[in-house]
Design a binder for these strands. Sequence first.
DNA 1: CCGATAGATGCAAACTATCGCATCTGCATG
DNA 2: CATGCAGATGCGATAGTTTGCATCTATCGG
Lengths: 156, 156
Amino acid sequence: MSRERNGGTPLAERTSAAKGLADRLRRVGQRVTPQRLVILGTLSPGAHLSADDVFARVETHLPGVNRSTVYRTLELFGDLGLISVTDLGGGARVFELIDEPHHHLICHRCGAILELDDALVDPLRVAIRARYGFVPAVDHLALFGFCAACATATNG
Amino acid sequence: MSRERNGGTPLAERTSAAKGLADRLRRVGQRVTPQRLVILGTLSPGAHLSADDVFARVETHLPGVNRSTVYRTLELFGDLGLISVTDLGGGARVFELIDEPHHHLICHRCGAILELDDALVDPLRVAIRARYGFVPAVDHLALFGFCAACATATNG
DNA sequence: CCGATAGATGCAAACTATCGCATCTGCATG
DNA sequence: CATGCAGATGCGATAGTTTGCATCTATCGG
Ligand SMILES: [Zn+2]
Ligand SMILES: [Zn+2]
Ligand SMILES: [Zn+2]
Ligand SMILES: [Zn+2]
């Protein structure tokens, strides 16, 4: 193992995704740790993972990692805008690497989940920015309500 | 107390708000219980109450009521569209009786909370309904992002 | 008004998430 | 490469939320 120390670059950092994260963390004054790199590695765009899902996957690569670290790191990544954090009503919040924004409509009555086109959401983003100077990070919205079927069933 | 049974109308139901709720519950096939009436009574438009706030208030009127009942009832009311359920990032979700919709913008970096005019949100509501037939219940949105000050600080 | 029953509540345990503090480590400095 | 320290992690405690099950009750039919 003494030959592994190739020029100071940490082991886990030698993939493009990890390299990108490492740079990004350093740029905002955050430290690069093995835990953070592995936790990021378990996330991907399009996958809704719970904190426990992430913990389970991370544990196989980094035995001994702690749940608190997973939670704290996921919160950090959320604050940095790297991942979305969403309550889809399934008991635990889900985390997802941000790529193209996408959103969900969830029926209060039957639980159906539809996908919502970001094109409908973008005007809101723009309007908020124009009116308040606030830059919203709406990459993965979950809106509750009633699907077409349940809406008519409820009223009639 | 034997003279209290006035025509089968339960004790707690003799206020206009409670009467309205009782009717509404029966209309959707839900039972009317003292717990539900008192829990609704603790909520009001404009007040952000946590589940624990609600529990504390309910307990003074109904000693012995259980936390689970409060949680289950709040979820029921949320599903029925009576109250909004929102994660403002403060640790516990907040519940509020629905009246006029209002929304919040929350800064990831400094924690500032601005109010968001529903006029900016309404077009989204309308567009979703038009496109999907889905009737969204967006009465109390919480959108995270960066406030004007923090947005410039982060980029520059 | 009584009895039957679907469904609500109480209770305890499990699950989800956060926090304080001691220890460890990434990173800067010389 | 050694040293120092701010900050990250591990750990246990605590807060917040959900669930399974036994019991109780609102509601309905008689
Ligand atoms: Zn999604
Ligand atoms: Zn539905
Ligand atoms: Zn509010
Ligand atoms: Zn801010």
